[in-house]
Amino acid sequence: MNIYLLISAILFLVSTYGILSSRNMVRMLISIEVMFNAVVLAILSMGNILAYKVSPNAVAPLISIVIFSIVLAVSEIVLVFSIMVGIVRFRLVRDVDTEELVTRER
């Protein structure tokens, strides 16, 4: 049993539950960040398995992908949270509830 993959699986479970059970945009996005952590851990532990079983050179592309994904995750955080603050500032909705965004009258 691979303990790192097990930890990432449990993190994935918790984050999926957090996304599905919440109606608050901020909490959903924070749950997506937990999921991102789980996926990074899973990719790197799979990289270790690949390094031992397939080829040592198989690890470098995975590290590149993870580094790119960390930078892209930060871009996503910056953009989405600024949109959210903009929505609340412009009083488009009273709060950051997704149901209110969907049912808002034009």
């Binding site: 699986a9 608050n24 270790n48």
Partner: peptide
């Protein structure tokens, strides 16, 4: 905060993460 159905969310989350659990149990620790 309003919450969605917790039981349904838990069921969907467990089903979605089953492949990762399977992989974790089958893979050895390198």
């Amino acid at each position: 905060e309003r919450r969605a159905s917790k039981a349904l969310s838990l069921v969907v989350a467990v089903v979605a993460s089953l492949p990762l659990f399977y992989l974790a149990i089958m893979a050895d620790n390198p």
